[in-house]
């Protein structure tokens, strides 16, 4: 049993900061993907013909019932097998993004369904098309309504982005593992990593609160 020595971290701080930067980048990209695809899935579930709706529903059911880690394995190894050779980091972004798209879609669907029918009728009678009605009238109101739960999904996404280290993508946990392999001090490194995630989390919570406030103000 060796004593703890947090000063070893000093030398590796730039390294950890670089890892944190990649964690933030992966999370932001996956976050946007999860939101965009979430809207698409939600709209497909509510309005698309059965040939589209059924596969979307099946996909969502499958992705909700299985662990993200398993989905990351499937995407990382599966994409290559079907001939799509993209850098590993994209399989991480796609895996995270699709996983949370499913959860966002579940929330957004309920949000869209709860928008008063009169909104659609009013918009259609003003001459908006079906898609325009969705794009400019229904979905924006649904998004405003569902911001808090979608925000919690984003916070979960940020933390779960640590899983992409398992498929070898360089981010915060991976950076720590590299540092550990030359210092043999896992305790100090993982404490530091936990602290950085905690700070990133606080930062994201602050941003989400700001967004909610702005959206609230435009009501």
């Amino acid at each position: 049993m060796q004593g703890l020595d947090f000063t070893v971290l000093v030398e590796y701080l730039p390294f950890l900061a670089w890892g944190a930067w990649w964690t933030a980048l992966i999370s932001v990209l996956a976050g946007f993907l999860s939101f965009g695809m979430g809207v698409v899935f939600a709209v497909a579930l509510l309005y698309a013909p059965a040939v589209i709706r059924a596969p979307v529903a099946g996909f969502m059911w499958l992705f909700m019932g299985t662990p993200l880690l398993l989905q990351l394995f499937l995407i990382y190894f599966g994409l290559v097998q079907i001939g799509i050779d993209i850098p590993a980091i994209w399989s991480g972004v796609i895996g995270l993004g699709l996983h949370y798209a499913v959860y966002n879609a579940d929330i957004l669907r309920a949000g869209i369904a709860s928008i008063d029918k009169g909104q659609t009728e009013g918009s259609r009678s003003l001459g908006f098309g079906r898609l325009q009605t969705l794009r400019y009238v229904v979905v924006p109101q649904a998004v405003r309504l569902t911001l808090p739960p979608i925000g919690s999904n984003m916070i979960a996404l940020l933390k779960e982005s640590s899983l992409v280290s398992v498929i070898g993508i360089a981010e915060l946990v991976n950076a720590a593992q590299l540092g550990i392999s030359s210092t043999f001090r896992p305790f100090e490194f993982y404490i530091a990593v936990a602290a950085i995630y905690y700070l990133l989390n606080l930062l994201l919570e602050g941003v989400l609160a700001l967004i909610e406030k702005r959206v609230e103000a435009t009501k």
Binding site: L4, K159, Y190, I191
Partner: peptide
């Protein structure tokens, strides 16, 4: 506020320290 994976790593790899 921190990832479960990091908590597991801290316990399993950092614990012996």
């Amino acid at each position: 506020g921190t990832p479960c994976l990091v908590q597991l790593f801290l316990l399993y790899f950092g614990g012996p320290q």
